[in-house]
Amino acid sequence: GSLMYASIFGNVSAIIQRLYSGTARYHTQMLRVREFIRFHQIPNPLRQRLEEYFQHAWSYTNGIDMNAVLKGFPECLQADICLHLNRSLLQHCKPFRGATKGCLRALAMKFKTTHAPPGDTLVHAGDLLTALYFISRGSIEILRGDVVVAILGKNDIFGEPLNLYARPGKSNGDVRALTYCDLHKIHRDDLLEVLDMYPEFSDHFWSSLEITFNLRDTNMIPGSPGSTELEGGFSRQRKRKLSFRRRTDKDTEQPGEVSALGPGRAGAGPSSRGRPGGPWGESPSSGPSSPESSEDEGPGRSSSPLRLVPFSSPRPPGEPPGGEPLMEDCEKSSDTCNPLSGAFSGVSNIFSFWGDSRGRQYQELPRCPAPTPSLLNIPLSSPGRRPRGDVESRLDALQRQLNRLETRLSADMATVLQLLQRQMTLVPPAYSAVTTPGPGPTSTSPLLPVSPLPTLTLDSLSQVSQFMACEELPPGAPELPQEGPTRRLSLPGQLGALTSQPLHRHGSDPGS
């Protein structure tokens, strides 16, 4: 009898404990919600809404976190579960008819179910419309201010047509639940991603989709105040780019002037030289400038040598048109050559190039014969006009050509200096018209024969001689050997007369 009593008592207590286990969990969670309300000092109306929603959600799901349970299964099984949970929507909604099984599984994985109690606001006026909503159960109302403009029910759709707008718009009203509602919502990016994977279904979906109420604000059109608020930074940046392009296009129409201050000032006329910023005076940081632009901040801005204009002085008759350009485009679109090309026009420029290279940067340069637009006047290309890779490749080509020119210049200078040193070592320090008596009659020769300089066969020296023939050397430049009979510069000019005159010897006659 005691054994029977113990078994009955144990079973009854276990049954009672299981009955009250759900209630215990409910009270535990309710205590957490109330502690949250007390800690954050939530006001009474919002506090009442929180408690009511918790009670309804507990009775609806029995305190089970559906998302946590669903995430515990593998992905393939999750797709089947989501397809079952959203079967009513996918079967009865017209846009989803005719979709393949794979497309429906992908869509079912992207849908999220939302449960809303009465009085809950789903979308506020001015919120971004980031999702498309399908009503599965219940009814909602749409308000503009305090005026109800629409009441939607089961199988209705609200949001915005995503295929017509590249960016999400703003809501033009509040969406509030009238009863307990079940909503299926899919985010904008998720829907577009699935439709991109199934393009054959995309056309059918957009053609058959009928949005019951379009929440997009109709005033959000390009150029409206609301649109400016939504895309303020983007609009200002776009206007700045367009104004920069218009100014650079105007600059290219004036090829007669070359400016070292950047493309923003290349198009300024002579009357605007004294102004601080020219056409860019209202925004000094709008356009890029070269490193020399920092010198323009000092006094005497109108007389600054940074602004270059072609000189009108005539060229000498024998002067060549100019050196070879550094870039391939210089032959086609440049009416002034790079300062480095002028360094190779003569030997005198070679000796004085490194010492006063900055001073020569603004000297007169030889002109190319074609009066085409200036290379320095070409505006900086924006990322939309020329690819970045093209600019980098041009810079690399320019750097390689500069290296080759520097190597060639160093070799030419070394060769010229070597020839000058050899000339100085071969010439005796001094010569006299009267020579010392020699031991015999073989001493009648006034000077030792001097062998002429070897013929220069280097390509670089031939180019130097060509430049010497075309360029007029300055007075202080050293002379180079030329073709024809060679003669030492330090010898007297009348050596031929010395050989014809008898030598005057000093000596005593033994017979006297």
Rank of each mutant, 00 (worst) to 15 (best):
L128Q: 12
L128I: 07
L128H: 12
L132T: 04
Y133G: 02
F134W: 12
R137H: 06
S139F: 09
I142C: 04
L143G: 07
D146Q: 08
V149E: 03
V149A: 06
A150S: 06
K154V: 10
N155D: 09
I157C: 11
G159N: 01
E160R: 02
N163K: 08
S171L: 03
D174G: 03
V175W: 01
A177N: 01
L178D: 01
T179Y: 01
Y180T: 11
Y180C: 03
Y180G: 07
C181M: 01
R188Q: 04
D189M: 05
L192T: 06
V194N: 01
M197L: 07
P199T: 04
E200N: 07
F201S: 10
S202P: 01
F205S: 01
S207I: 04
S207V: 06
I211H: 01
R216E: 02
N219R: 14
P222V: 12
P222A: 11
S224Q: 11
P225D: 10
L230Q: 10
G232Q: 09
G232C: 12
G233D: 11
S235C: 06
R236H: 07
R236W: 07
K241S: 13
L242F: 10
L242Y: 14
S243W: 10
S243L: 09
F244K: 10
Q254P: 10
G256F: 05
E257M: 11
S259T: 13
G262S: 13
G264K: 10
G264T: 11
R265P: 12
A266T: 12
A266K: 09
A266F: 09
G267T: 10
A268H: 10
R273H: 01
G281N: 12
S283C: 15
S285L: 11
D296Y: 08
E297K: 05
G298M: 13
P299R: 06
R301F: 10
S303G: 13
S304P: 08
S304K: 12
P310D: 12
S312H: 06
R315K: 13
R315C: 15
P321K: 09
E324W: 06
E324T: 15
M327K: 04
M327C: 06
E328D: 04
S334K: 15
D335E: 07
T336P: 12
L340N: 07
F344Y: 04
V347E: 11
N349H: 06
I350H: 09
I350W: 06
F351S: 05
F351K: 04
S352K: 15
G359D: 07
R360Y: 09
Q361Y: 13
E364D: 09
R367H: 12
P371M: 10
P373Q: 08
S374W: 05
L375D: 09
N377T: 10
L380H: 08
L380E: 10
S393W: 15
R394W: 09
Q399G: 06
Q401I: 05
L402I: 11
L402F: 10
N403C: 11
L405D: 03
E406A: 06
T407Q: 08
L409Q: 01
S410V: 09
M413Y: 04
V416I: 11
V416Q: 07
L417P: 04
L419K: 13
Q423L: 04
M424E: 07
L426M: 08
L426P: 04
A430M: 10
S432H: 10
A433W: 10
T435D: 09
G438V: 12
G438I: 07
T442A: 06
S445A: 09
S445M: 12
S445I: 11
L448I: 06
S451C: 09
P452H: 10
P454H: 07
D459V: 04
F467A: 07
F467G: 10
M468N: 07
C470S: 10
P475T: 07
G476H: 13
P478R: 08
E479C: 09
L491E: 10
G493M: 05
L495A: 08
L495F: 01
T499N: 05
P502D: 08
R505G: 10
R505P: 09
G507W: 11
D509Q: 07
P510L: 09
